[in-house]
């Protein structure tokens, strides 16, 4: 089974974040996907209230996590810088330092950066 690191660093308002999550979920069907949120990407996991903008959020996609081989990580410093705490997030995630994230990436056979 292929091990793939998906790094999301863009904010949730761009189509790229939606596309990244859709592709990551699909890859999770037959690959081992490590979905890593850094920088503004951590906002995707927060309650950013997309309905107020008339766009669909990520809850529905994230609700299907248990059906695919996908793990969620967030960089601890990125959360801290943005005043977010674990309990502010939609889903339980594993907090990692940048060094630990670098380790995750180096053990992956495919790396996607969004």
């Amino acid at each position: 089974m292929k091990r793939v690191a998906f790094i999301i660093k863009g904010d949730p308002f761009s189509w790229k974040s939606h596309e990244a999550l859709r592709v990551a979920m699909a890859l999770g069907i037959s690959c081992e996907v490590h979905l890593i949120f850094i920088k503004d990407g951590v906002y995707l996991l927060s309650k950013w209230n997309p309905e107020a903008l008339g766009i669909t959020g990520f809850e529905k996609l994230l609700d299907n996590l248990e059906y695919v081989n996908l793990k969620l990580y967030a960089e601890d410093a990125s959360l801290e810088e943005r005043g977010l705490k674990r309990e502010d997030l939609l889903k339980p995630v594993e907090l990692r330092s940048m060094d630990e994230i670098r380790e995750l990436i180096s053990h992956s056979e495919g790396v996607f950066v969004w």
Binding site: K16, A20, S30, V111, F112
Partner: peptide, 20 residues
């Protein structure tokens, strides 16, 4: 094709390059 097929194709490829 589809992203489901993409996950299958990845199994057979040695190198993956992404352009986002």
């Amino acid at each position: 094709s589809s992203t489901y097929n993409l996950s299958k194709i990845m199994q057979d490829c040695e190198r993956v390059l992404s352009f986002n």
